[in-house]
Design a protein around this nucleic acid. Structure first.
Length: 588
RNA sequence: GGACGCGUAGCUCAGCUGGAUAGAGUACCUGGCUACGAACCAGGCGGUCGCAGGUUCGACUCCUGCCGCGUCCGCCA
């Protein structure tokens, strides 16, 4: 169900019928003012410009043509020509009611399943997100990649695409030398690995201090790196222990965050290790890479500066070591070749934008990434402090993600205790978790900026205004109505009667779910869904005040229709929040 | 120096392929609970969309130049 598409088809047909070229863009958009209808077609003005004709006359012809289409007249009860050539479309309440009824009985809420038509094929989409560094604990900076990626993944799946999650964890590299040397010493001193690594941040700090200050430790650390890469059994065992425990830390966070990543989705950097020499060999054999100053590099002419100097991309260090450039190239080949991706999406911070641009160019040149495979690096900004400078705590450290999430739940608990003192501890815990975590996620997901964003405890943990609790509250209110009415929401009437402006606004909004979902998928911007759900909830609140449902003087037919509307709103809110990984509850 | 990103209300942010009078939240001010749940609603205040040009019926949106901030730019990821 996609109103925009339906209208686009109709307007296009009318445009062609009056003699405009087949490829004329009807330019359908949602009207931003009630007097301009629900949707508007702006394409005539652009077309008139190209043909150098009068836009109003052309628009008149298109409108006349539309009037001949009985099916269109069924959809729109009024079309108006306005201004220089706007065509304003007022959707017919009767048509909206029919669409709502169909949407309400559909198990997918009217969302077209990919693959159901020949032009809308199912794709295999590889999504690379979260990718924490296993040497350290996850901090607030990992929030974005993790939850934005997860939301896009869920949106893709809801639409019917095949998604392969890839958690490209940082489980390899020189820093593991010092960590393993330190872990080895601890185990020698009869410490248990789980205990020693219970606080990863602290463990890292200890190891770093020894690396910087303790005689001989740095050398041992370097030895461990060599041993690890050489496949030494003891060292590998030590490494495996470290990785396992660190992964558990991440899994705890994923669970708290209600993120769908599992162990099966992990494809860490180490997994590409054996392939790296082959990647470099192949690049050399194809003449793409060359030796330069002892290293193996690719000179990228496509990204040359004005002086004609190519951009440099190192794939092997002068000492023979490999870099993340090599790993990412290998990942390209694996994802398009082995995983058969039609599209690859990568969520990392914006600092890596240049790197991924280089990866794409080199991978395409080397044939690791066919032209038919989409490669979308989706960057986001750094986290800044309240002063607008790179974010640091007072002590110069980072805020642990676990700490933020715990704080959110604590604050939610306090608020609920205040508002609803009667809840049992069990209920309280349950609700506080959903509200607190939801608030944190929504605060982040609702921002689109690819630029830096400001981390602020207050806005992060806010429960008022455009926040997750607002949406959860709207949902709970609806459930409360069904409780009060003593009806199971399954037994609600299936017909809608759209009369009041508040009802119509809700009807149109409800039917726009798929449009929003598609935008989220193509642009990788869950904030559009956040905006949509907030608007939907907000319209519901207005409707709730203006249109009584269970009051004495409401006729049964009106009541039934409004209950049906409530039901569909609740389902849409729940489904939409689920895409964002935010939970709903019957009471809060 | 070069590349990329950003600059919208006091603050945090929306603004879709160029469209009509630039929108929310928050803060502040006015109203609304013997209740279909006030974590809410109705209303008010608040903007030279960084600056200057250009393209056109129309520019927050596209182009050029400048100013400011940030990030990246051959051996970390």
């Amino acid at each position: 169900m996609n109103i925009k598409q339906i209208l686009a088809k109709k307007i296009s047909a009318a445009m062609v019928a009056v003699g405009l070229p087949e490829d004329t863009n009807p330019a359908i958009s949602v009207s931003n003012r009630p007097q301009f209808g629900d949707y508007q077609a702006n394409g005539v003005m652009g077309a008139a410009k190209k043909l150098k004709t009068n836009p109003r006359e052309l628009a008149t012809k298109v409108v006349e043509q539309l009037a001949l289409d009985d099916n269109f007249n069924n959809i729109a009860d009024k079309i108006e020509l306005a201004g220089p050539g706007f065509i304003n479309i007022h959707l017919a309440p009767s048509w909206l009611a029919t669409q709502l009824a169909q949407t309400n009985i559909d198990k997918n809420l009217g969302i077209t399943q990919r693959g159901s038509t020949p032009t809308d094929k199912q794709q295999t989409v590889v999504v690379d997100y979260s990718a924490p560094n296993l040497a350290k604990e996850m901090h607030v900076g990992h929030l974005r990649s993790t939850i934005i990626g997860d939301a896009v993944v869920r949106a893709l799946e809801l639409r019917g695409d095949k998604v392969i999650r890839q958690n490209h964890m940082g489980d390899w590299g020189t820093q593991f030398g010092m960590l393993l040397a330190h872990l080895n010493d601890k185990l020698q001193a009869n410490e248990v690995a789980e205990t020693a690594l219970s606080d990863l941040e602290n463990f890292y700090r200890e190891a770093k201090i020894r690396f910087d200050k303790e005689d001989g430790f740095a050398d041992r650390a370097r030895e461990y790196v060599v041993k690890l890469q050489g496949g030494d059994t003891n060292c590998a065992k030590l490494w495996q222990q470290f990785i396992d425990i660190s992964i558990k830390h991440s899994e705890d966070i994923y669970q708290k965050l209600n993120v769908t990543l599992t162990r099966a989705d992990i494809m860490g950097e180490s997994a590409y290790n054996d392939d790296l020499p082959k990647v470099v060999e192949e690049l050399l054999a194809k003449g793409i890479a060359v030796a330069d100053q002892g290293a193996i590099v690719v000179f990228i002419d496509e990204m040359a500066n004005k002086a004609g100097e190519p951009s440099v991309f190192i794939v092997q260090k002068s000492g023979g070591g490999y870099l993340y450039a090599t790993t990412d190239l290998s990942a390209c080949r694996y994802r398009s070749g082995k995983l058969n991706a039609d599209r690859i999406i990568i969520f990392t911070d914006a600092r890596q934008a240049l790197h991924f641009k280089q990866v794409e160019i080199v991978a395409r040149k080397a044939g690791f990434l066919p032209e038919s495979v989409g490669y979308d690096h989706c960057p986001f900004g750094m986290m800044m402090g309240n002063d607008g400078k790179p974010f640091k705590t007072r002590t110069g450290g980072t805020i642990k993600l676990a700490e933020l999430l715990d704080e959110a739940v604590v604050r939610a608990t306090e608020l609920i205790k205040e508002k609803k003192p009667d809840y049992s501890d069990e209920q309280l815990t349950e609700i506080a978790k959903k509200v607190g975590i939801g608030a944190v996620k929504f605060a982040d997901l609702s921002k689109n900026r690819t630029s830096d964003y400001i981390f602020n405890w207050k806005t992060m943990l806010s429960f008022e205004g455009a926040t997750a609790p607002y949406l959860q509250y709207a949902y709970a209110r609806i459930q409360s109505i069904f409780n009060k009415a003593g009806i199971d929401s399954k037994d609600v009437a299936t017909s809608f009667n759209i009369v009041q402006p508040q009802e119509k606004a809700l009807a149109v909004k409800l039917l726009q779910f798929e449009e929003v979902l598609d935008a989220v998928i193509s642009e990788c911007t869950p904030n559009l869904l956040c905006n949509y759900l907030y608007e939907l909830a907000s319209l519901y609140m207005t409707f709730y005040e203006a249109c009584p449902i269970l009051k004495e003087d409401v006729s049964n037919t009106v009541k039934q229709s409004r209950l049906a509307l409530c039901q569909l709103i609740a389902k849409t809110l729940k489904q939409g929040l689920d895409v964002l990984g935010i939970e709903t509850m019957e009471r809060m």
